[in-house]
Design a protein around this nucleic acid. Sequence first.
RNA 1: CGGAGCGUGGCGCAGUUUGGUAGCGCACCUGGUUUGGGACCAGGGGGUCGGAGGUUCGAAUCCUCUCGCUCCGACCA
Length: 437
Amino acid sequence: MRMSHYFLPTLKENPKEAEIVSHRLMLRAGMIKQTSAGIYAWLPLGHKVLKKIEQIVREEQDKAGAQELLMPTLQSADLWRESGRYDDYGEEMLRIKDRGDRDLLYGPTNEEMITDIFRSSVRSYKDLPKNLYHIQWKFRDEIRPRFGVMRGREFLMKDAYSFDLTADDARHAYQRMFLAYLRTFRRMGLRAIPMRADTGPIGGKLSHEFIILAETGESEVYAHKDWMEKDTTAGGLSYDDKEKIGEFFEEMTSLYAATDEMHDASACPEGDLIKARGIEVGHIFYFGTKYSEAMNATVQNKEGEIVPVEMGSYGIGVSRLVGGIIEANHDDNGIVWPESVSPFDIGLINLKPRDEACSKACDDLYEKLKEQGKDVLYDDRDTQAGGKFADMDLIGLPWQVVIGPRSAEKGMAELKNRKTGEKQELSLESVVERMAA
RNA sequence: CGGAGCGUGGCGCAGUUUGGUAGCGCACCUGGUUUGGGACCAGGGGGUCGGAGGUUCGAAUCCUCUCGCUCCGACCA
């Protein structure tokens, strides 16, 4: 993409409404624009990141055996009356009437709807287990939206729902998602720590929050220091290996980690304890038959008895992750994207577009890198060099290639690693080779 | 929802106390000189001060109502 054609409204100054770093950087990098309190338009750069994160989540869900579908944002109030949550949910739920004066709501979550979908077609234990998910916009009319996309009213969320015959099977489904979550966050360059959590309004028996540590986190969290080193991805472990997954789950959950409200000061020696602030990026629940009983989602078991299915639900805050990743990956100059979620692979800076040789070298390199399948943001704008460097650092692409008249003459380019700041003079060919690797 | 604050060209702000009909920096446009970390000179365009009502000869400045946004707190993917 040539930057001269790209819609990238970067800001030199800090917008006053943004207090925390990820919000500030997202606005300055031209990723989002607020349209109402807690509601954002995703501009091209931000949208690319959002989609990358979404895709990683999708791939890891699929690997873990979940199946994607898509449910609507608007739901009928009747479903929620059936579960009893229409009244329980309170002001946070955005309620709407259609022209026929029927009560609708903009979904804050989808337990009722998925349960309805499930019950309308599943009758036998032979159809179990199932795990269905979608990635859809949600709305919760927060009293106080803040921190940019980390606590918006409208947000993109992946929510999965598992259906099993027995509590034991449901626990296994829960453990599989537990592993899938750790792998998902790791792919985004995040170290997420699973913490025993309160179940809140979703209700249930077993629940973990996945927390990443960041100074600007919303809540206080406590974790054993070994979490900082721990391999949480269980490489090679298959999702079908019920026993090993159970062991892995035990291993992970035996190492202390808790949110503020669940913290037990006596459970971990003081010297081993890390106290920090955390951002919740995922939350999983096993809630048994809470909804299946209320909504009559039943199957027949082997004995011919009609029993309510055992359920769990599993959320990942996709849009929140954009902010969360920035909180965990930035410096004074801007964002520092992990490669897996970076909006482009490489930023190419043409320092002097009016210099023919320089532009020729840049254009050629741009084409070669594209041929390699690289997604390149090419700064071909006829502006001051300083502004280009600043913008490129701000938007945080992992690799920068800089070519000016002097280097072009020698057939060289400068390759800079955004994270380490390390710079290297390379021939144009070796830049292509290095980036292909 | 309780507390605090803000709303003046695209962005950041001054002007409001002591009413006299709008200013600065950045951005933008034109010309020229520049060009490896946000340049310089000259010229130029753009706002009627969130909205409504009121007081006054006169309101960005005073009064009333209203809308929006932010921050702190209680609550949440």
